[in-house]
Each structure stands twice: as structure tokens, then as C-alpha cells.
């Protein structure tokens, strides 16, 4: 198959991203200013990092709903352990990453070995973590983020935000893993057909577990970085990332049913979501109305981009095409020759 046909979904995501960027710059001049692009990229990085693991899980035919509280737990743990000091970070960060990975392993094992449906397994883990953190902290706020973490999240090397560099490195590694390693091949195979994969000798359980471990790791990392970004950990800070991590994957052109897509698409998805968040406040809506619009826009975007909802996508594309014989607006309606308006009074 030619390159364009094979990567149609991903190319569409990038086209959408550029289009949206230009559209937004019409509404708010200064949107394309370097400083603004930079701060937007930082926000996209957080979505992108969480969505990295989610991409792996979704490609493998699963879904991880435990992302919010893995993220939140790692943020809370970080502030509790470090107590605002850089000193303990040397062992605290690896430990927290390992915890995230371990939670992912629990998700993966429950799904791959015990046959628990991914939605139930990860949702349960999410609730358990939420409860655990509430019990542990008693709901009290914890200490602030240590300076080093703040540097990772908001610092710069020259003109480049550190977090963007972290994201770029991770993105490179993820793309390599998907395109060039046996794990990547196995992941696509498991997501396309677990039966065929098993009959072909693919280590299906191992592949699934590894995908969830990755998701645990990236959620934990994002939790720590976000702590640095906001200067502290707070309860509920992971909640927005459940929706955005999945939406970024879907907007990026992956099938929500697994087997097709790529992290390169998810990157565009993360940007699209960030630009949308930046665009909507320009509409001067109340907070509640903003959420409604946000939800609707994402639903529409995802259904246009994703091959998982072909029916909805087709319906929307039909609507977008002007139907012949029907006036587009008032001006055209008035200009319609009288002969065509016999039924009018």
C-alpha cells in the first residue's frame, strides 16, 4: 500500500492540528507567538506522556482507566517522601516509577492471566488507589514539590522547556518500540487478533502485561512532573487525564478496538486537545458551558478521526457536504427563483 493510504489516519490528525492552530490564531492574535506556543507545548507534553502508555495499551486491544489515580498517587507519594527537599529524590523517583510499573503489572496480570475485562480491572484499581490515598493522607494537603522536580516541569535549557526534551526522548523511544522491535510487532498482533497471535506463538500475556506496565510508568512519571508544574500535589489532579489520554490516542488515528495506530499520531492528538483547551476560553463561556462544548468537540473530533466509529464519522462527513437543492443560508433562500417556492404562502 502506498505511504499516504497506510498512514491516512495519522496524516489527518496532523492536518487537523495545523488547521486548528491557524483557526485559533484568527480568534486570538498572539496565539502563534513563540512564548505562547512554548507554554502550550508544555501542556501538550503532560497529555502526551500519559497518552504514551495509553497508546500501548489501546494498540494491544485494552484500555487503562486507572491512569488518574496512578498519576495522583505518584504525585502524593512524591511530596510525602521528599517533603519539599531534593535530597530523597535520588531514590524516591525510581521507587515511585517502580510503583507505577507494579500497578500496571497488576492490571496486566489480572487481564492477561485471569481474564478480567480491562474496563473492570483498571477501573477497580483506580478506585482502590483513590481510597488508599484518601486513607493515607486523611485528605490533608501535603508538602510542596521539591525544586528539582519543579525544574524538570517548568525549567528550560536555553529556549527549550526541560519537559519537552523529556517528552521528545520518550516519544522517540516509544516510536522505536512500536515500529522496530519484536514487542511492537507482537503488540499489534495481539490487538488485531489475540487468537491468531496465540496460534502464531506470540507471547500474548507477556506482551499485554508489558503494555500495562508502560502505562503505569508513564502515568507515574506524569504525576511527578505535574507536581512540579503546579508546585504541589492535590487530590483529583489526575482526573482530567483519563479522558484526554484516551481521546489523544483516538484523535491520533488509532483504532479504539486495538491493532492499528501509532504514537506519532497520539502526539498530534495531544496537541489538538491542548489547542482546543486554549481556543474555548476565547468563546467567553461559563465554566460549565465550557465543559459541555469541550466534550462535544472531542466527541466530534474523535469520531471523525477514528475508524472505530465508522458510522458516526460517515454521518458527520455527509452533513459537512452541502446537500444540493437546499439553500445554505437566508441570502440564498431569498434568491431562489419563485418557481421553486410554490409551496410558500
Amino acid at each position: 500500500m502506498p505511504f499516504v493510504a497506510r498512514h491516512r489516519a495519522i496524516l489527518l490528525a496532523y492536518l487537523g492540528m495545523i488547521g486548528l492552530l491557524l483557526l485559533t490564531s484568527l480568534f486570538s492574535p498572539g496565539f502563534l507567538a513563540l512564548a505562547h506556543l512554548r507554554s502550550m507545548s508544555v501542556l501538550a507534553a503532560f497529555i502526551g506522556i500519559v497518552a504514551l502508555g495509553q497508546t500501548f495499551v489501546i494498540l494491544g486491544g485494552g484500555i487503562d482507566l486507572s491512569v488518574p489515580w496512578v498519576l495522583n498517587s505518584s504525585a502524593v507519594l512524591l511530596t510525602l517522601i521528599s517533603n519539599g527537599q531534593d535530597g530523597p529524590l535520588g531514590w524516591a523517583m525510581p521507587l515511585i516509577l517502580a510503583c507505577g510499573g507494579a500497578i500496571g503489572a497488576i492490571n496486566g496480570l489480572g487481564i492477561a492471566l485471569f481474564g478480567v475485562p480491562p474496563i473492570i480491572m483498571t477501573l477497580a484499581v483506580n478506585v482502590i488507589l483513590q481510597g488508599g490515598i484518601l486513607v493515607y493522607t486523611g485528605g490533608a494537603p501535603t508538602a510542596g514539590a521539591p525544586p528539582l522536580i519543579q525544574y524538570l516541569a517548568v525549567g528550560r535549557i536555553g529556549e527549550f522547556p526541560v519537559v519537552l526534551i523529556i517528552w521528545a526522548v520518550l516519544a522517540g523511544a516509544a516510536s522505536l518500540a512500536l515500529s522496530k522491535t519484536a514487542f511492537g510487532r507482537h503488540l499489534y498482533a495481539v490487538g488485531t487478533s489475540p487468537t491468531v497471535a496465540a496460534y502464531s506463538g506470540v507471547p500474548t500475556a507477556q506482551t499485554t502485561v508489558l503494555a500495562y506496565v508502560t502505562c503505569g510508568l508513564t502515568a507515574a512519571l506524569a504525576g511527578m512532573l505535574l507536581t512540579g508544574y503546579s508546585g504541589q500535589a492535590y487530590l483529583g489532579m489526575g482526573d482530567p487525564y483519563l479522558f484526554t489520554s484516551i481521546a489523544a490516542v483516538a484523535i491520533g488515528g488509532a483504532s479504539v478496538l486495538g491493532g492499528s495506530g501509532h504514537y506519532i499520531g497520539t502526539i498530534a492528538g495531544a496537541f489538538v486537545l491542548t489547542i482546543l483547551t486554549g481556543l474555548l476560553p476565547a468563546l467567553n463561556l461559563s465554566n460549565g458551558a465550557l465543559l459541555i462544548v469541550y466534550g462535544v468537540v472531542i466527541l466530534v473530533t474523535v469520531s471523525l478521526a477514528s475508524e472505530a466509529f465508522p458510522e458516526l464519522g460517515r454521518a458527520l462527513r455527509r452533513l459537512a457536504v452541502r446537500r444540493p437543492g437546499r439553500p445554505r443560508n437566508m441570502a440564498e433562500a431569498i434568491k431562489t427563483p419563485a418557481g421553486n417556492r410554490e409551496d410558500m404562502p
Binding site: 498482533a189 488485531t192 491468531v196
Partner: peptide
């Protein structure tokens, strides 16, 4: 269903 990944 057992032999081939049809979409690959």
C-alpha cells in the same frame, strides 16, 4: 480467525 491477521 486463527491463521492470519487480515488487516496486516
Amino acid at each position: 480467525n486463527q491463521g492470519l491477521l487480515l488487516s496486516k
